[in-house]
């Protein structure tokens, strides 16, 4: 059963949230989901671009009350 890991990078600026995700993605199994919380708008755009570049799956991005939630699945 795939699990979901939360990475709370709120308050951190670029490229902090992306680097936290990259550190976190090594800690989960292939197929697992990660949700990154970020208050940095730039990172909310940057993370999906990184996902596309390296080939993981972007599940979705949404913003609620100034917090971006970026959901990713590790695929390799």
């Amino acid at each position: 059963m795939a699990e979901k890991k939360i990475i709370d990078a709120r308050g951190s600026f670029c490229s902090g949230p992306l680097m936290e995700l990259i550190a976190g993605i090594k800690m989960v199994e292939i197929g697992d989901e990660i949700e990154v919380l970020s208050t940095d708008k730039g990172s909310a755009a940057e993370i999906p671009q990184w996902i596309k570049k390296v080939g993981h799956e972007l599940i979705g991005t949404r913003e609620e009350a100034g917090i971006w939630y970026v959901n990713i699945r590790r695929t390799k």
């Binding site: 490229s15 992306l18 680097m19 990259i22 990184w50 570049k53 390296v54």
Partner: peptide, 8 residues
């Protein structure tokens, strides 16, 4: 350096 390195 960091973003470049983690992007392959």
């Amino acid at each position: 350096a960091s973003v470049g390195a983690v992007s392959g």
